[in-house]
Write a protein that binds this DNA or RNA. Structure first.
Length: 459
RNA sequence: GUCCCCAUCGUCUAGCCCGGUCAGGACGCCUCCCUUUCACGGAGAGAACCGGGGUUCGAAUCCCCGUGGGGACGCCA
């Protein structure tokens, strides 16, 4: 059997959004599952809307997601060039084939593709004008996801604009032929276009590829499919917010596909092993950022320490200039690491880290007045504070266990509970009532900082 | 308006192809437990087969019709 060749063919006319990412992902998965080839092709025939900047968004997003391409810009391949703007000669050659077959005609300066069949005029309600319909035979699409779909293409359509540039339907088909694409996996929004493509394949005497139209991703609130302007639509936003690409990829896999059992969080290698076209759903899926956040957290919690710190470091580095960013940047590398690892099991995302850890890096952190009121209303916090200051002067700060033992001992001697010390100590050293365990807090902050903050707070 | 696709908890979904288990899991929500704050974690509750016909002893599952949702109808891709 011929080797599977799939392609992802984005147009650099907008941002790279979640729907495009999933289309790319499903193509990539299918290529990896079958041992086939994943081609990246840039559909930049619309000169009005293209820009180099958008091209980089595509490359960056795919790379970040780990969707490496086997052929395409940057890596080459035997069927290039891989940007449509550089394939004019190929299109001309195939246009000649259509012309020679008598399947084209010129009108209003543009070149139309001629369908086979009887012609008659009819008034089109939607476009409010009379159009020429063709009594064509239906195109049969054997869709790997949807089954047999019939659709009749009944109007000639433009394949070359009056400015001489070929349009999407034509170049898409020509490229799929010349790049030997065996499976076209794309969004369901293209299903209606497929009859045009089938007509072109036939007219060019080329075999029609296998089709697989995947369901669309609907916006989480309101009607319609997700578009680049919707909340949470852009891949670069997840990247910027410190989401883990493996979590996003895992989440995206589950939008329209499942392994056939209850498993959700699974390594990409396992997904590759199990992924197949018949397993893809037929119905559209609504995007749910809460579930994505949950998936991200699950990955975050088990991220190896080195990678977690690396992610945190990168996130801090991109932070807009400010007190926390500056202080963290100046912080000792091992201290930064300890602070981040202490916070890893506590935060729900990398993006929470700066706010969550701010007091580790500066001395002028705010004291939450509401928390202060609550804590100071408890049983003799001033005495507890004084006792803690004494403890901080002499206790062993080297391990959590040592700190815990010291505080417990203190509590026992003064007829108080661990909690009586915990709350006031936390308030004094961090200004809040949330954070890592008090023992971890003491250990990482270190004796000097803890003592200084306790004394200052007591004053 | 025409054409195409789809239809199980609020959401993602299993089950459907090859009719017969209290329709299963996950997210979210709520309750409880754990606890040194906050999270994490654990336990539990609540929550669905769009409607109507048919076929059948029996339909979430097969067929038809509605309805609903989505998409396409550009010299955009």
């Amino acid at each position: 059997m011929a080797k599977v060749r799939v392609r992802f063919a984005p147009s650099p006319t907008g941002f790279f959004h979640i729907g495009s990412a999933r289309t790319a992902l499903f193509n990539w998965l299918y290529a990896r599952h079958t041992g086939g080839v994943f081609v990246l092709r840039i559909e930049d025939t619309d000169k009005e809307r293209n820009s180099e900047q958008f091209l980089n968004v595509i490359y960056d997003s795919l790379t970040w997601l780990g969707l490496n391409w086997d052929e395409g810009p940057g890596v080459g391949g035997d069927f290039g060039p891989y940007r449509q703007s550089e394939r004019g000669l190929v299109y001309r050659e195939y246009l000649e084939k259509l012309k020679a077959a008598g399947r084209t005609y010129e009108k209003d300066g543009a070149i139309f593709f001629r369908l086979l069949g009887e012609r008659h005029e009819v008034y089109d309600e939607h476009r409010k004008k009379t159009v020429t319909k063709v009594g064509n035979t239906p195109a049969v699409i054997d869709d790997r996801i949807r089954g047999r779909v019939e659709r009749t293409e009944d109007e000639d359509f433009v394949i070359v604009r009056s400015d001489g540039n070929p349009v999407f339907h034509f170049v898409n088909v020509v490229d799929d032929i010349t790049m030997r694409i065996t499976h076209v996996i794309r969004g369901e929004d293209h299903l209606s276009n497929t009859s045009k493509h089938v007509e072109l394949f036939k007219a060019l005497g080329a075999p029609v590829p296998e089709y697989a139209h995947i369901p669309l991703i609907l916006k989480q609130n309101g009607p319609g499919k997700m578009s680049k302007r919707d909340q949470g639509a852009l891949i670069e936003e997840y990247q910027r917010r410190g989401f883990l690409p493996e979590a996003l990829v895992n989440f995206l896999c589950l939008l329209g596909w499942n392994p056939g059992d209850d498993r959700e969080k699974m390594p990409i290698a396992e997904i590759i092993r199990l992924f197949d076209l018949p397993g893809v759903n037929q119905s559209n899926a609504r995007f749910d950022e809460k579930k994505l956040a949950h998936m991200n957290l699950a990955y975050l919690l088990e991220l190896p320490p080195d990678r977690f710190v690396e992610q945190a470091r990168a996130f801090f580095a991109r932070l807009p200039a400010g007190a926390t960013a500056a202080a963290a940047a100046k912080a000792d590398e091992s201290y930064f690491r300890e602070v981040m690892l202490l916070s890893q099991p506590k935060v729900k995302g990398i993006e929470e880290l700066p706010a969550y850890t701010a007091y580790f890096f500066c001395e002028d952190f705010p004291i939450d007045p509401k928390v202060r009121e609550k804590v100071m209303a408890k049983d003799d916090p001033k005495a507890r504070l004084a006792e803690l200051i004494e403890l901080a002067k002499s206790a062993d700060f080297s391990t959590d266990a040592a700190i815990e033992a010291a505080i417990k001992d203190l509590a026992a001697r003064n007829g108080a509970g661990f909690g009586d010390y915990q709350a006031v100590a936390r308030l004094a050293v961090s200004g809040t009532n949330v954070g890592p365990s008090i023992t971890g807090l003491f250990r990482v902050l270190g004796r000097e900082r803890v003592l200084r903050r306790l004394v200052r707070f007591a004053a």
